[in-house]
Design a protein around this nucleic acid. Sequence first.
DNA 1: ATGACCGCGCTACGCGGA
Length: 263
Amino acid sequence: MRIVNWNVNSIRARAERIGAWLDRSDADVLAIQELKCKDAQFPREIFDSRGYEVAFHGLNQWNGVAIASRVGLDDVEIGFDQMPGFGEDLAAEARAISAVTGGVRVYSLYVPNGRELDHPHYAYKLEWLDRLRAVAAARLAADDSDTFVLTGDFNVAPLDEDVWDMAEFEGATHVSDAERAAFQALIDAGLQETSRPFTPGPGVYTFWDYQKLRFPKKQGMRIDFQLASPALAATATNASIDREERKGKGASDHAPVIVDYDV
DNA sequence: ATGACCGCGCTACGCGGA
């Protein structure tokens, strides 16, 4: 089963490209982040017309997550247990959705950006990741053979080699000790990142800023991942990052992360 | 290569992204 996660940076602006990508991707499951639309605006015909079921969650022009699958889609869950909110009313944002597909619970996650180290959004990001860790740990405690995967835009570059130049990120989010510790805590809980073993760095990225010719200069960040439960991770056979999809006019600033599992 | 980001929203520049 081929599971893909992709931050599309607006599903409406990207609708044609996503359809064309689906036609050549052989994806069984596509976990999408940054829809940038409300549910009523979601262009579900992209998926309907190609035989994919789709579940989506969008509250406004920010965030938004979805899962499309051609191998079934059941038990859809919005958010996760004790997912923190943000803002004056601490309202939940549209950053998490999951469903059981092909026997695997697949999460589509858009981790908060953090903005600045001293911004409330940063504390929110760390708390969000910690609550996510608790959910993963609870799943494994209940059943250590559970097959599930946390996919999406984690907005953390876990290793120095996951950015093109650490000096450029002095004092910035995405590379701080606390963010990396929050990511490592997911690994320590028992999850395994399944794309990196097949796509080793350095110089391998999933995101390139639109600004400053970052893509042609090969200056990117690896921040999109698949964190699989041990039982699922053991079946991973291959992975790739579709950097071709980052090329040309109308590309998302993130590339699809593709992992094949023998399930 | 003397250029230099994109999408969104009560159309105009501010916000968010990373």
